[in-house]
Simulated scan of single mutants.
Amino acid sequence: MNGETVRAIRVYKEMTQPELAALLKVSTSTIAAVENGHRVVSDNLRIRIAQTFGAGQDIMEAIARAKESEKLAL
């Protein structure tokens, strides 16, 4: 999982960075740094994302789209 994947999930769920950060109990700056590639996705953050969003078909499709494109159309 990388920053593009985190952004894809956030955009798919129609959330802002502060909303996602609050849901995952991390700082907004952590989400911003991850999405911008300035920070790696820690194991702890991966676990929180998996526990929160699971691995349903909708999440898997968002991840697949993120892998296909370096830039998400918002």
Results as ranks from 00 to 15, higher is better:
1 M>F: 12
1 M>D: 05
4 E>W: 07
4 E>T: 13
6 V>D: 02
10 R>N: 01
11 V>H: 07
11 V>Y: 08
12 Y>T: 03
13 K>F: 01
14 E>P: 00
15 M>D: 00
15 M>T: 00
16 T>H: 09
17 Q>P: 02
17 Q>F: 10
18 P>L: 09
19 E>N: 03
19 E>T: 02
19 E>G: 01
20 L>V: 05
20 L>T: 01
20 L>Y: 06
21 A>F: 11
24 L>H: 01
25 K>Y: 11
27 S>C: 03
28 T>Q: 13
28 T>W: 08
28 T>R: 12
29 S>F: 05
29 S>Y: 06
30 T>G: 02
31 I>P: 00
33 A>K: 15
34 V>K: 03
34 V>F: 05
35 E>Y: 06
35 E>W: 04
36 N>P: 06
37 G>M: 03
38 H>W: 13
39 R>C: 07
39 R>K: 15
41 V>S: 07
42 S>Y: 09
43 D>T: 14
43 D>G: 15
43 D>Y: 09
44 N>S: 15
45 L>F: 08
45 L>A: 06
45 L>M: 13
45 L>I: 07
48 R>D: 00
49 I>H: 00
49 I>V: 09
53 F>W: 04
53 F>A: 03
54 G>W: 01
58 D>P: 05
58 D>V: 10
61 E>C: 08
61 E>K: 12
65 R>Q: 12
65 R>I: 10
66 A>I: 05
66 A>C: 08
67 K>M: 11
67 K>F: 11
68 E>K: 14
69 S>R: 14
69 S>K: 14
70 E>R: 14
71 K>G: 07
72 L>H: 12
72 L>F: 09
72 L>Q: 07
72 L>Y: 09
73 A>F: 14
74 L>V: 13
74 L>K: 10
